[in-house]
């Protein structure tokens, strides 16, 4: 305990509330309130309605949601596979090799998403890999962007994994492939789950690279939110944003449930 006096403590808590509530809690509440309103000209929104939601689960909105979900799941699965493979391969390499591999897979974090979008656009708009105009270019860009995070969290988990399990397995006569399948991957499962949740959330909210790449028939939710607000439909945009947040939260919740069941210690 840092502050011992009652007044001191209340002052600290008041300061916290004054900073925290308007900056972090209010924005999310405001979006939620707006999504149920038709007007906002004054201190509070008015004209309560659920119409934005009935619209949000139909037509192009529903399509955008499924587009986002498919994109996020596909990108996460590919990213997790590639990222985990790379992390495992890096862990088996010597110190130098590991650093090179880690640096390579970390690079997409440092490169602006817009530039990733531009690079993918430049590279895949020409034969032999003509993907521009298809959904695959969006999925590909998302995969690139989230692979780095998958790799980062899985390699951190591998570093935390006590080598004694691997050694115990080896002393019992298990070959490396058996150790990988029966010991390492099961022990990494909680971290893989967490990484999957992270990838999914990032992909669901991705806007920068998507704006450069999306074809008309593959419009993810964030793009739809932007076009809605851009043409002034702030309340529809808010409802879509709530749908986006809810979908992300649900997925994270599901993943964390798996994680608690899969954590052994």
């Amino acid at each position: 305990m840092l502050v011992h006096s009652r007044t001191g403590r209340w002052t600290a808590w008041a300061l916290f509330a004054v900073l925290f509530v308007p900056l972090f809690a209010l924005p999310l509440l405001v979006i939620l309130a707006a999504s149920f309103s038709t007007h906002w000209s004054g201190a509070f929104p008015s004209g309560p309605t659920a119409a934005h939601y009935t619209a949000a689960v139909r037509g192009e909105s529903l399509q955008a949601l499924t587009t986002s979900l498919i994109t996020a799941v596909t990108a996460s699965v590919i990213a997790l596979t590639v990222g985990t493979w790379a992390a495992l391969a890096a862990a088996a390499l010597g110190k130098k090799g590991r650093r090179v591999l880690d640096a390579l897979f970390m690079l997409p974090v440092a490169v602006p998403s817009v530039v990733v979008g531009l690079a993918v656009l430049v590279a895949f708009s020409q034969p032999p890999m003509l993907l521009n105009g298809t959904r695959w270019i969006v999925i590909l860009a998302h995969t690139v962007l989230v692979t780095a995070f998958a790799h980062q969290s899985v390699s951190a988990a591998i570093r935390r994994l006590d080598p004694m399990y691997e050694q115990a397995a080896a002393s019992l006569g298990a070959r490396p492939s058996y150790v990988l399948l029966r010991v390492k991957l099961p022990l990494l499962l909680p971290s893989l789950n967490a990484a999957a949740g992270l990838c999914f959330a990032l992909s669901m909210g991705e806007l920068s690279a998507t704006m450069m790449l999306y074809p008309p028939d593959w419009t993810p939710l964030p793009v739809l939110i932007f076009t809605a607000t851009d043409r002034g439909s702030l309340f529809t945009g808010s409802a879509l944003a709530v749908v986006l947040m809810a979908a992300t939260l649900l997925a994270l919740l599901a993943v964390s449930r798996i994680r608690t069941r899969a954590s052994y210690r």
Binding site: M164, Q167, A168, A169, S171, L172, G173, A174, V183, L187
Partner: peptide, 20 residues
Amino acid sequence: LPPYKRGIGMVVQQYALFPH
């Protein structure tokens, strides 16, 4: 020889039982 070809049994201080 790699460890898995040596036919040894090993017990360590921290037990190293597979938690899963």
